[in-house]
């Protein structure tokens, strides 16, 4: 009876039908009932607004900075803000042109970049060496790690007065300060990179009978390299920070001296030129690290694609 019922009324759902003795008939009835289908194709991928937004992206992103520069120019040229507080964009550009013309900026840049680079190389070198010693040998970890972790908590800027007493006011205290600041990020990342090597790869090395030396050179060090580079990238940023801090205390040459002298003469145009150059240095540093990663890590899929 249920079979005939379900055939006569196919629109009814099976659960509404009287319980059947015949499971096959109940199944047929279920399958015969129409499903309420929703139209998924109605919602199309609308190209209009999204694509338009993407095309206008650069315009939108540029809106705020350009607006700020315009506001800066207007407020300074209208006399709302006196030049002793903030120089106009035009006078900043002129100051930059003059500084470049008489070679003052180039000299200052060379001196400052030299300090930062020297400090960075020394600091990163110590960081990598300490990271490897602590990462590769348990004894090394015991000897090095706790001490460095303790020293890490000292804000490096607090050391400036001490370094002035020890090393005077020449280049040495500045380079030492930058080096000290660079040791920690490089050390921490090197240590983590060495320790983070995949155990499963080490097992492969064991199975194929690699010596400890080969295990380190072929498995551990390449695996740690991305991490070491992250540390160096971080250290590069810190080296600039340390450079600015060191140069503002006392400097007879370099970007810091240029900026401090201008500050004493209330030449805000030159001060702003100095700030912009520091920023450009930061940008350059980032570029160098990206290039390094691309050269040293060709096997990394993320590096290849970026």
């Amino acid at each position: 009876m249920t079979v005939q019922d379900s055939r006569r009324a196919p629109g009814e759902l099976a659960r509404d039908l009287p319980a059947s003795d015949d499971p096959a008939a109940a199944e047929r009835a279920t399958l015969a009932a129409p499903l309420d289908l929703t139209d998924l194709s109605r919602r199309r991928n609308a190209p209009g607004r999204r694509a338009g937004l993407r095309r206008a992206r650069w315009l939108l992103r540029g809106l705020l900075p350009v607006g700020l520069v315009i506001a800066w120019q207007w407020s300074t040229s209208s006399g709302l803000v006196p030049p002793t507080t903030l120089a106009s964009p035009k006078s900043v550009l002129e100051a930059a042109r003059d500084l470049i013309a008489d070679g003052e900026l180039q000299t200052a840049l060379r001196v400052s970049a030299g300090r930062a680079l020297t400090g960075l190389v020394i600091g990163a070198g110590i960081g990598v060496a300490a990271g490897l010693v602590a990462g590769l040998w348990k004894l090394g970890e015991e000897l090095v790690d706790s001490t460095l972790q303790m020293l890490r908590t000292v804000p490096f800027i607090a050391l400036i007065p001490l370094f002035v007493v020890w090393f005077g006011i020449g280049d040495t205290p500045k380079i030492v300060l930058i080096a000290v600041a660079c040791v920690f990020p490089v050390y921490l990342n090197t240590f983590a990179g060495v320790r983070g090597v995949d155990r499963r790869l080490i097992e492969v090395g064991q199975v194929f009978g690699l010596s400890r030396t080969r295990m380190i050179t072929r498995l551990v060090l390449p695996n740690a390299l991305p991490s070491v580079l992250v540390g160096i990238r971080y250290a590069m940023g810190i080296s600039l920070l340390a450079l600015v801090a060191a140069e503002q205390i006392n400097a007879s040459s370099g970007l810091g001296a240029l900026v401090m002298n201008a500050s004493n003469q209330i030449r805000t145009d030159i001060v702003i030129v100095g700030v912009v150059v520091y920023a450009l240095l930061g940008l350059l540093v980032d570029l160098v690290v990206r290039l390094l990663e691309r050269l040293l890590l060709p096997w990394r899929p993320t590096i290849v694609k970026s």
Partner: peptide, 9 residues
């Protein structure tokens, strides 16, 4: 092994 475990570098 179950995974290839090749040296990525």
């Amino acid at each position: 092994f179950q995974e290839p475990r090749l040296i990525p570098s």
